[in-house]
Amino acid sequence: MELERISVTIDRCSKTYADGTRGLQPTSLQVEPGEVLALLGPSGCGKTTLLRLIAGLESPDQGSRILFGDQDVTQRPVEQRGVGMVFQSYALFPQMTVAANIGYGLRIRGVSPQQEQRTVGELIELTRLTGLQSKRPGELSGGQRQRVALARAVAVGPRVLLLDEPLAALDAKLKQSLREELADLLRRLNITAIHVTHDQQEAMAIADRLAVMRAGQIVQVGGGEDLYRQPSHPFVAEFLGRVNRLQRSAQAIAEQVLLLGDARIACPSGLGQAALLVRPEDIQVGAPQAGWGMARIEQRTFLGDRVQLKLRVDGQPEAILADVLRDAPFHTGDAVGIHIAPQALMPASEATP
């Protein structure tokens, strides 16, 4: 089944509700043809508002523009935009078979029975539902229901596929397996897709790029690995994974160093803040040695694939978390050496203009 691959352009799009609440600050975003883009952020950040504006379920403020390809759809109602939607509940018809659910949108559009059968057959094969055509939703697993919902959404040939927290209602173990399945399915469908989620791992596993949102604004857009390793904003660093906050004195700032126990770590230029961030996996722990700081292990937690150490370091008001290999020979009460590569340090506050 051939699906149209188009771009989506959000140009200075904002939303103000009747009571004056600003659901979305003026926002611009470009989604490339065939790209899977995740809108990621905490509850209330504006990601669902933006998705509803793209779908046509909400009207944006004056001056906003939404384009599908080169076509301005800002004033078009949802039924004229050519969007497919998958919701958290999947919203399948329980009394209908898999085949009937997938073909429902085609039937209400007056497509011939032959064309419906052909399209449904292609999608059943594409979404690996072969042999389940006559089953009803109540007889399917969570992953199978998700595939039916996706197949139904794309059966009518939408130009853009919108997914609103499709995995949010699942338990952690099922969610992990289904996000891999969803990522694979979206690649095979080869359709432009926008996926709303508050789950960082889900977004990084499924999307080509992430748009991280906070307080009605997009803070940073990029690939998951780029945003994790090189966040341009402290919020992105803290939202995408765990971080330690390290404090610095005025003298340390002036000397462009971080004091870590009795060690002085040179800081890259531009990091003039009183606090810096570092991820637990970027803290080296080993035998005490020259140039390294001294720390004492307050707690050792075995996490299966790694060991988490809670370290107490002189000069730091809070304990520091470090991730080490699961066979690391460190125990509670041990004195150890720690080191941080300067390039692993990140600012803990926004740069002042």
Results as ranks from 00 to 15, higher is better:
322 A>L: 12
207 A>T: 06
259 L>R: 13
204 M>W: 07
175 K>C: 11
124 I>F: 05
154 V>E: 01
29 L>Q: 05
181 E>V: 01
208 D>Q: 08
78 V>P: 01
54 I>A: 00
131 G>E: 11
118 R>W: 11
227 L>T: 05
177 S>H: 12
298 E>L: 15
51 L>W: 00
59 S>G: 08
62 Q>W: 12
115 Q>D: 15
50 L>A: 11
33 P>F: 06
264 R>V: 09
20 G>V: 04
126 L>D: 11
96 M>T: 04
143 G>E: 06
252 A>M: 01
257 V>R: 04
12 R>F: 13
152 R>F: 02
312 R>T: 13
121 G>E: 03
193 A>S: 15
323 D>T: 14
336 V>E: 03
161 L>G: 10
242 R>D: 15
296 R>I: 08
184 D>I: 10
304 G>W: 03
180 E>F: 13
199 D>P: 08
6 I>L: 03
98 V>T: 02
193 A>D: 04
295 A>R: 01
114 Q>M: 11
13 C>R: 10
196 V>K: 01
345 L>M: 05
263 A>E: 06
255 E>I: 11
65 R>C: 15
232 S>L: 12
1 M>D: 02
352 T>R: 14
131 G>F: 10
217 Q>S: 15
329 P>S: 07
54 I>Q: 09
36 V>E: 02
208 D>V: 10
123 L>F: 03
99 A>I: 00
311 L>P: 09
62 Q>K: 15
81 R>V: 07
207 A>H: 00
317 P>V: 09
175 K>Y: 06
337 G>I: 12
202 E>N: 08
308 Q>V: 14
239 F>G: 08
164 D>M: 10
348 A>Y: 02
251 Q>N: 13
230 Q>T: 14
227 L>C: 04
